[in-house]
């Protein structure tokens, strides 16, 4: 296994003077499912944005397959809490966008879209507009679109944040299964500690702003795991508790009144 994404002493200060992250050193192995947790506003999303090349670090560098990321990194794909489906296109039309950009033929696109709809469990909904779908179905459509252009690394920023617990579990199971079978590397930001433990092979814990890596926890759970029964697994409960203990001081500091 080789490192696919490497952060070397990365810092990011924005023009308004806010130091989002500083001193980030991290190596992500190919095929890893990495979860990132930390107090809100600690720059979790910033590291995803820098991996995607949406903006440059102000210190250090981000290497992708050994090359510094200097522009849009199209080997990565993004999925966020907002699905960003195009409201004027049907579900099939949305999934077709990356295929159209790649210049594929009409027939090929139609076949590929059918395959992806089946993959995410949306058969029969291709002709619906996103506004006609439930939140969970929209996520599936966004996931299908993400898989349509087949990026080797998936950047996920609280993708299941707005969903109810059962829908989230269903999608987590599906995502985990898909990523394992397709061999994707996943960088998954969440504020949900249970989710971070359940999904991650490794869990990166951030401190509050300016965010830096406090600890990287390697999961003791097998990477092939049954998310459905995980909550009855004592090792899972122990890891969640451990993560809570690490994060508690930062959360407490956030809750106490700010000193002048």
């Amino acid at each position: 296994m080789s490192a696919i994404i490497v952060f070397q002493d990365v810092g990011k200060a924005f023009a308004n003077g806010v130091q989002a992250v500083s001193g980030i050193n991290l190596a992500v192995e190919e095929g890893d499912f990495i979860t990132v947790v930390g107090p809100s506003g600690c720059g979790k999303s910033t590291i995803l944005n820098m991996t995607a090349g949406l903006f440059q670090p102000s210190a250090g560098q981000v290497l992708y397959r050994g090359q510094p990321v200097t522009g849009i990194n199209s080997r990565t794909g993004y999925m966020t809490q907002v699905d960003h489906l195009l409201p004027w296109r049907t579900v099939a039309g949305n999934i077709a966008v990356p295929l159209e950009i790649a210049g594929r033929g009409k027939k090929e696109i139609a076949g590929e879209v059918e395959r992806l709809l089946a993959l995410v469990g949306l058969v029969g909904f291709g002709a619906s507009y996103p506004t006609q779908l439930s939140g969970g179905m929209r996520k599936r459509a966004a996931l299908a679109r993400l898989l349509a252009y087949d990026p080797e690394t998936l950047l996920m920023d609280e993708p299941f944040g707005a969903l109810d617990a059962q829908m989230r579990l269903t999608l987590q199971i599906q995502l985990k299964k898909l990523c394992r079978s397709l061999g994707k590397t996943v960088f998954f930001v969440t504020h949900d500690i249970d989710e971070a433990v359940a999904l991650g092979d490794k869990c990166v814990v951030f401190t509050s702003r300016p965010g830096t890596i406090q600890q990287v926890i390697t999961s003791s759970l097998p990477s092939e795991r049954d998310l459905m029964t995980l909550r009855f697994n004592p090792a899972y409960a122990e890891e969640c508790a451990q993560l809570w203990r690490i994060l508690a001081p930062a959360l407490e500091a956030q809750n106490s009144p700010q000193e002048a």
């Binding site: 995607a52 949406l54 849009i72 990194n73 199209s74 990565t76 794909g77 993004y78 966020t80 907002v82 960003h84 195009l86 004027w88 296109r89 966008v97 990356p98 159209e100 950009i101 790649a102 252009y149 990026p151």
Partner: peptide
């Protein structure tokens, strides 16, 4: 037009032409 929308398309290797026809014009309509 949402900058996120544009960023997501750029990650799909979209050129300005794609951005115009797929996102900008339809959302401006």
């Amino acid at each position: 037009v949402s900058p996120e929308q544009i960023a997501i398309l750029r990650l799909m290797n979209a050129k300005e032409r794609h951005l115009l026809t797929k996102v900008i014009l339809p959302s401006a309509i």
